[in-house]
């Protein structure tokens, strides 16, 4: 019965949505302190290649590979972040854009390690690894009425869902605290924030690094969901796509990033004919948004109004 509902195709789309949500949050976090990073695709690539290479060549457990991928991306974030954060927003955007391209060019050219533009194949797939692990304990998906590939995709979705929830929980809690207040005060007025005693360099590096870590995590997960990666997965277009998730959904609230990633991943899947024109539509959407609603679909005012709506309904009841 469960087997009829669980369609691997839907599960796969769901897993893309979840990875894209992580990516959108990786742009959202630095933006919450006023920093635009165009290097998210690069950090994502670093996470993906690190984890893929480690697991292929050294046969280490996936979870350690994925964590290593995220950490290497985070460390790269610190290395790039500290010097470039002396720069203001626009310069940071360009520096990160340059970084992303350098990373991609290295992936293409370091053929002995990365297999060049063909990319890496045979990356251990997360769901299958878990299935094999479970089988070691005598578990069979048929025991809960599932086919093997249904189980594989279901496990992936559940793990991603868990990670997304944990990330959102982390970001929301951080936001409603002394750290979050510092980040948003820097975003609103850097000079005033500093004269209130906030060490702006520290907080900017912090949020930038968190973004790099999250992008690296998403990249590593991507590698182990897809099973193959190539440099074109981490091009400038990917960076722009991630940026659009966040900017479209709403760059001031985390719900915006979640909504943007979900909506913009779903639409091309549901409306197939749009898929070909996706980037043209993205371009138009960006132009119109900046002119009409630069903060994106969701902002604090809209959220407050929605909350108010819920409350008044509760009142009637």
């Amino acid at each position: 019965m469960l087997a009829d509902i669980i369609n691997p195709y839907f599960l796969q789309i769901l897993s893309f949505i979840l990875i894209n949500i992580l990516l959108a949050i990786s742009v959202y976090v630095p933006l919450s302190s006023g920093q635009l990073s165009l290097g998210s695709a690069g950090f994502m690539g670093v996470g993906a290649y690190t984890s893929a290479l480690l697991t292929i060549h050294f046969d280490i457990p996936l979870i350690i590979g994925i964590l290593a991928g995220a950490c290497v991306a985070g460390i790269l974030g610190i290395i790039v972040g500290i010097p470039s954060l002396r720069l203001s927003g626009v310069y940071l955007a360009i520096a990160t854009l340059g970084l992303g391209e350098v990373i991609r060019v290295i992936f293409v050219n370091w053929e002995s390690l990365t297999k060049g533009s063909i990319g890496l194949t045979g990356i251990p797939q997360m769901g299958r690894e878990i299935l094999n692990f479970a089988k070691g304990f005598g578990f069979d998906p048929a025991m809960i009425g599932l086919k093997s590939n249904q189980f594989v995709y279901l496990v992936i979705v559940l793990i991603l869902l868990l990670l997304v929830i944990a990330t959102i929980w982390f970001v929301v809690r951080q936001q409603n605290s002394r750290v979050g207040r510092s980040l948003s005060s820097i975003q609103m007025d850097e000079k005033a924030a500093e004269s209130m005693g906030i060490n702006i360099t520290y907080y900017k590096v912090l949020s930038f690094t968190q973004g790099a870590f999250l992008a690296g995590l998403a990249g590593a997960l991507f590698a182990h969901v897809m099973g193959y990666i190539s440099p074109s997965d981490f091009s400038y277009h990917r960076a722009v796509e991630i940026l659009i998730f966040t900017v479209f959904g709403g760059s001031e609230v985390i719900l915006g990033a979640v909504f943007g990633a979900t909506f913009l991943t779903l639409v091309p899947e549901v409306l197939r004919f749009i898929s070909d024109y996706r980037y043209i539509i993205y371009g138009i959407v960006l132009i119109i948004l900046m002119a009409v609603r630069p903060q994106g679909i969701f902002d604090i005012h809209l959220l407050n109004r929605l909350k108010g709506l819920k409350r008044s309904k509760g009142g009637v009841r």
Partner: peptide, 21 residues
Amino acid sequence: GVSHLAPLISTIGVSILLENL
């Protein structure tokens, strides 16, 4: 209230529009 990043993002929009057209 328009962030200094808005024109940057807006011209990125133009760039991907032109490229894909």
